[in-house]
Write a protein that binds this DNA or RNA. Structure first.
Length: 318
DNA sequence: CGAGTTTGACCAGCGC
DNA sequence: GCGCTGGTCAAACTCG
């Protein structure tokens, strides 16, 4: 499968999705249709609607193909992971009975396999699972996000679409900047925690470490009235993927002002992606990582399904 | 006044 | 056992 073309397709899709939102007017009560200020007659309207319907159908087909491709990619990556794990059993069998040990092993897995931009599911052995209480198992799902902010910005705030409550701050030995501890406060039962600390190497980069999985949708997504993708919560934030010595990471650039021009954002992130992946191998690798992290995320797949069905519905209602 | 933040105290893991 | 360290708690405080 050609991963880079997959990305191109997705970008096109995004662009057309945007154009759909921008161009498709809200249901008019009158018989006339206004598009970009132009008044259409009923005939013109029906013609435009048919055209729109065709276009949306084509996009729907594209989305379906994309979803299939993502699933295929996911399956392929999963089998690769299984191969890797079977080839490196000693990594999985290393003692991790203690809390801190298990965390460092998680991070090692991040580095060695580099497949958990999203959630790590490969860290807990059966032996560990039997020893650890349920809370610890939940904690085993760790992901790390690098967020670029203004260096002068001292607030350790990472806008990720969720609602957080700070419950502690600590200065750690290896980093002069304080580490902030957050709990997800949107849902009382949500076990997710995050640690936020400025990077030692680059003070303008904030490292957010997430532990656990949300058992609810992001706050921003809950507020949305219609089905929207998970990307909406990040949609206003330019992001890029890169290969660091510590493994592949996602970097959100918060120094870029929140822009309503999503084309610009798309160009921005696309440009950053191109810059961060110089060789085709690296590009393909990054694409696979992103596909893997996205397909692993049940929120994303649910949001994607909602977006598809939502658009189908809106097509029918037009 | 309630919700969120700050911050010192406390606890547990780890190395010596 | 002891000290160091990271993580969490909870009272005090701030803010809307």
């Amino acid at each position: 499968m050609d991963s880079s073309s997959w990305v191109d397709t997705s970008l096109d899709l995004n662009a057309s999705a945007r154009s759909l939102r921008l161009e498709t007017p809200k249901k008019e009560t009158s018989s006339n249709l206004f598009v970009f200020g132009k008044k259409f007659s009923v005939k013109e309207e029906s013609g435009a609607l048919v055209e729109e319907l065709n276009r949306v159908s084509a996009e729907n087909k594209k989305l379906t193909e994309m979803l299939t491709a993502m699933c295929e990619s996911y399956n392929a990556l999963q089998s690769q992971l299984m191969d890797l794990m079977s080839k490196n059993p000693e990594k999985e069998l290393s003692p991790a009975s203690k809390k801190r040990k298990s965390e460092s092993i998680n991070n090692d897995n991040n580095n060695n396999f580099g497949i958990n931009i999203g959630n790590s599911e490969s860290s807990s052995t059966d032996e560990e699972s039997s020893k650890k209480p349920r809370e610890e198992i939940i904690k085993a799902k760790i992901s790390r996000v690098y967020v670029r902010t203004e260096a002068s910005d001292t607030t350790l705030v990472v806008k990720d679409g969720y609602q957080w409550r700070k419950y502690g701050q600590k200065v750690t030995r290896d980093n002069p900047s304080p580490r902030a501890y957050f709990k997800c406060s949107f849902a009382p039962s949500c076990p997710v925690k995050k640690k936020v600390q400025r990077s030692v190497e680059d003070q303008s980069v904030v490292v957010a470490t997430y532990e656990g999985e949300h058992n609810h949708l992001p706050a921003s997504q809950m507020e949305a009235t219609s089905g929207s993708s998970r990307c909406m919560s990040l949609g206003s934030v330019p992001c890029s993927a890169s290969l660091n010595p510590t493994g592949p990471t996602i970097t959100l650039d918060l120094t870029k002002s929140k822009s309503s021009n999503s084309d610009e954002i798309a160009r921005n992130s696309n440009k950053q992606k191109m810059e961060s992946s110089s060789s085709p191998e690296v590009r393909k690798y990054l694409v696979e990582q992103m596909a893997s992290s996205l397909t692993k995320d049940p929120n994303f797949t649910a949001a994607l399904a909602a977006a598809i069905s939502g658009r189908m519905f809106s097509t029918k209602s037009n």
